[in-house]
């Protein structure tokens, strides 16, 4: 394993600069505190005859000045850290999405082309990567120290994490949220490759199982679980005339805004589609009766991800 330092991402190097600044501030304060304590310990030790002169009894001038100084420094650090944090967690729009499912005790990765890997993540360099992560059981945490980044992976929801690596290399991956006895074994590696190498890797079937495009696999599930029975083949939507029941169209749904019965409007992202499948009563779509059954406990997180990939692939009006 190599390449911890300097960080392999631009943002990671910025984090290092922030850490350096924090280190310098800390050293300055420590030097001041220890310096004064040592100075006074020597100069004002009980046996020393040095003149103590007039002692100041009014303390508020000192209090105000060191409180103000502390506040100013803290505020600066707060702004710096906060600004960088916001950028760390706002992915660019064109990021390549890769799906990650954590379970006791392994990382399962699935690429859009259906290539799967375990405890490893292959990525191309110089391209923003967005991970969509969820957990099958307890809380895990996806951490890559070389990118100075991590995020918890929770059951029941999607967390995203993005980064853009600008160097070829192999970087350590850790789970950093205690997830049971095998916590320490839940490690792996992120392999950053050049774009052509990455494409070769994708094409060579590096994944052990014969893989199928995620959306295509999702399409099979769409039929197998009876989704098409109401939402129609290809998710064109259902009506009492066609499918016998009114069901919203799913083609072109991804990224659109959807009006709910509660009056709220939400954007149909990964999380929304997941909620619609697993907890449909939480997201009652305006204009349709609340009759969709919950699929919670019936399909695994990985299958949900494939279904989502399929729904994403449905362009408006198209019949795949």
């Amino acid at each position: 394993m190599n390449g911890y330092w300097p960080s392999a991402t631009t943002e990671g190097r910025e984090v290092d600069v922030l850490l350096l600044a924090l280190l310098l501030v800390s050293c300055a304060v420590l030097a001041l505190v220890f310096g004064l304590i040592l100075l006074y310990m020597i100069r004002y030790r009980a046996g020393s005859g040095v003149s103590r002169g007039e002692r100041s009894h009014k303390t508020w001038r000192f209090e105000i000045s060191w409180t103000a100084a502390t506040l100013a420094i803290f505020f600066g650090l707060f702004i710096w850290g906060g600004d960088l944090y916001v950028r760390l967690f706002q992915p660019p729009a064109d990021a390549l999405q890769i799906y990650v499912v954590g379970k006791q005790w392994m990382w399962k990765v699935e690429h859009q082309g259906g290539q799967r890997e375990i405890n490893a993540l292959h990525i191309p360099i110089n391209r923003p990567i967005q991970l969509v992560m969820t957990s099958e059981d307890v809380i895990h945490d996806f951490a890559v120290p070389a990118f100075r980044i991590k995020h918890d992976v929770l059951p029941g929801r999607y967390q995203t994490l993005w980064f853009q690596v600008d160097r070829i290399g192999v970087f350590q991956l850790f789970c950093t949220q205690l997830c049971g006895v095998g916590h320490y074994t839940m490690t792996g590696e992120v392999v950053a490759m050049s774009q052509p190498d990455f494409e070769n890797w994708l094409a060579s079937g590096a994944a052990p199982e014969g893989h199928e495009d995620m959306a295509a696999a999702g399409k099979d599930l769409f039929t197998a679980h009876g989704c098409s029975g109401c939402h129609g083949e290809g998710g064109v939507g259902g009506s009492p005339e066609t499918t016998g029941i009114a069901a919203p169209a799913l083609s072109g749904l991804y990224g659109r805004s959807v009006k709910l019965q509660t009056g709220a409007t939400v954007t149909a992202d990964d999380k929304f589609i997941r909620d619609c499948i697993l907890t449909p009563d939480k997201t009652p779509v305006a204009g349709y009766p609340l009759i969709m059954p919950s699929f919670a406990g019936q399909i695994s997180e990985e299958k949900v991800l494939r279904l989502i990939a399929y729904i994403k692939s449905l362009k408006s009006g198209s019949r795949t």
């Binding site: 984090v15 922030l18 420590l30 304590i37 650090l77 850290g81």
Partner: peptide, 25 residues
């Protein structure tokens, strides 16, 4: 005083959001 000050100053590291992302856990 020495140890607490060191502990407090490193608290500034983990209070800074972006730094905490790397250092927490």
């Amino acid at each position: 005083i020495g140890l607490f000050t060191t502990g407090g100053l490193t608290g500034l590291f983990v209070a800074a959001l972006a730094a905490d992302v790397h250092l927490t856990q």
